[in-house]
Design a protein around this nucleic acid. Sequence first.
DNA 1: GCATTAACACGTA
DNA 2: TACGTGTTAATGC
Length: 224
Amino acid sequence: MIAPEKLLSTTHWARDLPADELERACKGLAERNIAQGAYLCHRGDRLDSWTGVLSGLLKLGSTSRSGKSVTFAGLPEGMWFGEGSLIKGEPRRYEVVALRDTRVAMMNRQTFNWLFDNSVAFNRFLVRQFNERLGQFIALVEHDRMLDAPGRLARNIAWLFNPVLNPLAGDNIEISQEEIGLLAGVSRQAANRGLRQLEEEGLIALEPGLVRLLDLDGLRLYGE
DNA sequence: GCATTAACACGTA
DNA sequence: TACGTGTTAATGC
């Protein structure tokens, strides 16, 4: 059980639910802490809940047998994930690790299925989220060759501010340059150089431990 | 040549 | 004192 006010403060889809459905959702949710560096799940795990970030920062990616790791997406406060594995009844195809101490809300399968079967608002959200993710991944494949550091940084930052997936994101996010480096797969020093380049181009503004969004489309379409 | 790691200096909470 | 940031030197591909 999680307090409705707490869910509403971070989670946009909850705001669209009628009162009875919101109550049902809250009853099926439990909170959990994930320490920095700890894994919420590994590839192949069967994780029987849908998960949202209440505070902190998660990284969704995978590691090959040879040890190379790839980031699919950063998951800041307000983002929800795992519906694909839940609906298909599949093991997770990715791993989720906390880049800093993080608090998540986890919805059990019965509650998720009930909302899936009964809530129009919930299904509207799921379709929007699937659609947006699909668009993001198409763009990722399209610009596969664009591998330079500023481009990867721009893409990752644009994702964190995605207004469809995370309408409550606002125009700034508390994230260190080291954490952005971890998301983009570059060193802290390279992240530092790349971020200052993006700042010079007027796309973002940098403050210690914080990135302010100035031009979302400029980031999204960077290098095109 | 390029990016990465290691190491240190600086400012701030 | 701890952390985020900026810089340089050494190292590996």
